[in-house]
Nucleic acid binder design. Structure first.
Length: 569
RNA sequence: UGUCCGAUGGUGUAAUGGCAGCACUAGAGAUUUUGGUUCUCUCGGUCUAGGUUCGAAUCCUGGUCGGACAACCA
């Protein structure tokens, strides 16, 4: 057995993903002097989401693995969409995930001067020209994927005229949209990206960093590769939709005559039961389907942070899903599994009753209060122990009592015994119902004084263990029960006449008031707990000593729920 | 009627011409003062048709299916 296991491990010590394979090959052939230098290049026009987290982990992870470096670069070439608000949130999120760009923070806008010079080089080589057509005319003459485009009537302007026009574009002599600089490549190329792509457009807009210095701005294609080049990036890792841009990327650095990084594309992340496109997330926020970008139901990094997901869990997630080129939809239960796995080791246990019903111990002295000793985390001895007050009147979960229980119900019912966690074994003697509603108002029980936790008699076998809080000691708190935002596994593939918003989960948030043991009174925003037998919870950013607020991060696995469902109750 | 990319259990990902493995999910059991955790087991896969080869998930050819590309967005 043992030998066989070792054999398999030897055979496949650690398998590489396709990007690592490319890098190791480049390292062997020494193309980049043995360097590995990546970059994470977001446009500061929105908040980062879990898909960006995959890219961040990939870029920083690969650099770390091969002793390289990673730059953070803001791809800020479109002033009308971008803002410093996003710059700040992106830096916060990258740091929170646990990555450090050290002193390598860059902006594409830092290179506007250099990029302008590159454009001039291209013009002088006869490889770029100023085009006076309107956006519509350019679009009309581009052709289709199956039909070649038509050459612009301005395509054969002299170098001198192009130089003069481009200078005047820069000097602000022309109105927005009146002219562009285009590459002069091939209007009949089977690759649409090569049909004389626009390199510069006129935009009399104030840039969040360069102010009004420029009124022409480079397009993505003219900025990205050259920025990579200027930063001596070795491997420029991006998502699949840029695959068809690679010939242009390579053409530009080659014709300008500068250092050439290697672009590698991978499949972007899709997660089940959510949407990931910036446009849709923006819509959810704008139409108040959620309460902002950091709503705990959002797949944004700030949303997950507020929900109580940990950086470790998200990094493990990125490692576990791997990286490849085929389209994929990752099951969100994998993410939830990794969050539980991490929190199981880290979160202290606490007892909270979310749907209370009163239990009265008839044989327990009226004014007695005992301090029960409870383990903070059975998975982590160093987490220590705490005292929990116990008294005659308690609350337990309403779901933990049934008058007429089905088979396999191990909880409290008339005449049966259960253990109260870290306290006594109790027996249900009778119930008192509300005379009007018929709902159970009080469960009267007796406790067995010999079964206090730790005493020899406490080892007696009882089927169920319930969590509880002491009526006069518990603190109340607002509890926000979050669930999946969508009811459909892939909200993007909507039926005819519908869109993703038709599949919003109406029960994705329930707000209730719960009773929690007093230990949580000092909880600070972000503090994480396991509410025993219920789930993991995190103090919300708006939580305070005066008003405690807890967000449900994820439920515990619940095998009783499955049994119950199968019994058809 | 183009170019490029892709196709391995329900999901994701390995196997680099030599025993199709791992994780999640689902199911069964053991342990348990959380119906949690932990442990054990089970179900389940190479898109298709040919070819090369002693041997093909892997190489070749055809087909099928899916995705990207026609912003002065990134």
């Amino acid at each position: 057995m043992e030998e066989k296991k070792e054999l398999t491990e030897d055979k496949n010590p650690r398998s590489l993903n396709f990007i690592e394979e490319i890098i190791e090959e480049d390292l062997r052939s020494n193309v980049y002097d043995g360097r590995v230098h990546t970059r994470f290049p977001p446009e500061p026009n929105g908040y980062l989401h879990i898909g960006h987290a995959k890219s961040i982990c990939l870029n920083f992870g690969i650099a770390k693995k091969y002793n390289g470096k990673t730059n953070l670069r803001f791809d800020d070439t479109n002033p009308v969409k971008e803002d410093v608000e996003y710059v700040d949130s992106i830096m916060e999120d990258v740091k929170w995930l646990g990555f450090d760009w050290e002193d390598r923070l860059f902006y594409a806008s830092d290179y506007f001067g250099k990029l302008y010079e590159y454009a001039v080089i291209l013009i002088k080589k006869g490889l770029a020209y100023v085009c006076d057509m309107t956006a519509e005319e350019i679009s009309d003459t581009r052709g289709t994927p199956t039909r070649p485009g038509k050459e612009s009537p301005y395509r054969n302007r002299s170098v001198e005229e192009n130089l003069d026009l481009f200078t005047r574009m820069r000097n602000g002599e022309f109105a927005d949209g009146s002219r562009v600089l285009r590459a002069r490549i091939d209007m009949a190329s089977p690759n649409m990206q090569m049909r004389d792509p626009v390199l510069y457009r006129i935009l009399h807009a104030t840039h969040h960093r360069t102010g009004d210095t420029w009124c022409i701005y480079p397009m993505y294609d003219f900025a990205h590769g050259q920025s990579d080049s200027l930063e001596r990036i070795t491997h420029s890792i991006c998502t699949l939709e840029f695959e068809v841009h690679r010939p242009l990327y390579d053409w530009l650095v080659r014709e300008i005559g500068i250092y050439a990084p290697k672009q590698i594309e991978f499949a972007r992340l899709n997660l089940s039961y959510t949407v990931m496109s910036k446009r849709k997330l923006l819509e959810l926020v704008g139409e108040k389907k959620v309460n902002g970008w950091d709503d705990p139901r959002m797949p944004t990094i700030c949303g997950m942070r507020r929900r109580g997901y940990t950086p470790d869990a998200i990094r493990n997630f990125a490692d576990t899903i791997g990286v490849a080129k085929r389209d994929n939809v990752i099951d969100v239960s994998l993410l939830e599994f990794l969050v539980r796995e991490d929190l199981n080791k880290k979160a202290n246990r606490v007892m909270a009753v979310l749907n209370p019903v009163k239990v009265i111990l008839d044989n327990y002295p009226e004014d007695l209060v005992e301090e029960m000793e409870a383990v903070n985390n059975p998975e982590e001895e160093s987490a220590g122990k705490r005292k929990v007050a116990f008294s005659r009147e308690l609350y337990i979960e309403r779901e933990d009592f049934m008058e007429d229980p089905p088979k396999k119900f191990f909880r409290l019912s008339p005449g049966t015994e259960v253990r109260l966690r870290s306290a006594y074994i109790i027996r249900c003697e009778r119930v008192v119902k509300d005379t009007v509603t018929g709902e159970i108002a009080e469960i009267h029980c007796t406790y067995d004084p010999q079964t206090r936790s730790g005493m020899p008699e406490s080892n007696r076998k009882v089927k169920g263990t319930l969590h509880w809080v002491s009526g006069k000691h518990a603190v109340s708190a607002e509890i926000r029960l979050y669930d999946r935002l969508f009811v459909k596994e892939n909200p993007d593939d909507a039926e005819e006449g519908k869109d993703y918003k038709n599949y919003l989960n109406p029960d994705s948030l329930k707000v209730i008031t719960g009773f929690i043991e007093p230990a949580v009174r000092s909880a600070r925003p972000g503090d994480k707990f396991q509410f025993e037998r219920i789930g993991y919870f995190c103090a919300d950013k708006d939580s305070s000593g005066d008003k405690l607020i807890f967000n449900r991060t994820v439920t515990l696995k619940d095998s009783w729920a499955k049994i119950e469902k199968n019994q058809g109750t």
